[in-house]
Design a protein around this nucleic acid. Structure first.
Lengths: 202, 202
DNA sequence: GAAAGAAGTGAACCATGATTCAGAGTTTCC
DNA sequence: GGAAACTCTGAATCATGGTTCACTTCTTTC
């Protein structure tokens, strides 16, 4: 019994791993997946390229973890809003607004999550998360139709349409940072989303 | 004056180039951009890998040409429908339907154009074509609002939303070929698109 | 403080796939 | 027919960037 990881050592390693994920996330947000080489990520975390492999078996595994963390946060936030109290139509409106606002506040990351070219493993993860967004929208839409606040419709299709519409509307502004037009964009986007679900125009 | 390309020779070269583009398009539609190596494309056209470089300066240039041709056809078809005769709302409906139907008829290619991971040059091209789709939708929407067939709205945002919504709704079915559900999908998709533009439900 | 074991380093290694190029085969023109 | 100019071939070359590994540095335990 000559060596045994002490609790302090374990948490130091854990912290190093977290730091690596966090730095990798920043790098991806700044330069995109394709430019986020192992070397660049390791440099930004202040460690050697080889050390990355003490925390992750491959670059792809790290990339997937980065994506999951970031996308998971968004799904969680959106879920909270959509599952919150109040009228389904109002929750839908707030969901779109919150999602878009968060994206515009962290454009680089939002672009990486929504649209930036990425390796296959991340692409697969992205599909999975789009499915989750869809499921969240579908729930609210279904609730709206059953309570009569929304007209009859295929909730799954509407949910997919919402996911795509919001992403597409955001991608362009995400590339060209223009602060002052954001509020108007948000208003127009939420209006389009509500129309898409068939909500009566306010 | 010892050698001069004869007309026959010129058209033979031209035909070889066209054939290459056509074969490359098929390969991309079947296996996606990432698997469409120069060797695979050359093999499918029955020429050596090196010969590709007699027609294109780089693989990226060929990929861009493949994308432009295919996407250009779609823009053209959509434009014809949207610029055709009749009520703007009806043209909108038919535009969505035609676009979606064509995508479902050639799923592999549609997926490659809309969503498949691709090199940077193709990604840039894709952005450009999305802008063109958007411009086409925006025109009709604007026409609808000025003639009073559609409620007041930001036509550019609605156009972006339509582009994203249609793409997103299609991407999933494009991966899982299911013939019989297509008609229902088309009906639900056009309904969602019309709602998105604020068209009164039929 | 010394041995044992683990983490960290970074230059070398390796896999992939685009690109090149020397030689073989074609076409043109006198 | 034959020289000149061009196309075609495909194995060799090259570029990129992820991954490995012999070695160094740090931790633990006695």
């Amino acid at each position: 019994m000559a060596y045994r990881k002490t609790p302090a050592e374990i948490s130091r390693l854990e912290a190093a791993r977290e730091r690596l994920i966090s730095c990798a996330t920043s790098v991806v947000a700044e330069v995109g997946w394709s430019q986020a080489s192992v070397t660049a990520v390791a440099d930004s975390a202040g460690i050697a390229a080889g050390s990355v492999y003490q925390h992750f078996p491959s670059k792809a595994a790290l990339a997937v973890e980065v994506f999951r963390r970031a996308a998971g946060r968004e799904v969680e936030v959106l879920g909270e809003v959509l599952h919150g109290p109040g009228d389904p139509v109002e929750r839908l409106r707030r969901g779109v607004e919150v999602f878009a606002r968060r994206a515009l506040e962290n454009r680089g990351l939002a672009y990486a999550l929504l649209a930036a070219p990425a390796e296959a493993a991340v692409g697969a993860e992205r599909l999975d998360f789009r499915r989750r967004y869809r499921a969240l929208w579908a729930e609210v839409v279904r609730e709206g139709t059953t309570t009569g606040r929304l007209p009859p419709q295929n909730a799954e299709i509407t949910a997919a349409a919402l996911t795509g519409a919001i992403g597409e509307v955001l991608v362009d502004p995400l590339g060209t940072p223009d602060e002052n037009a954001a509020e108007e964009l948000l208003a127009d986007l939420t209006a389009a989303a509500l129309r898409c679900a068939g909500a009566p125009t306010a």
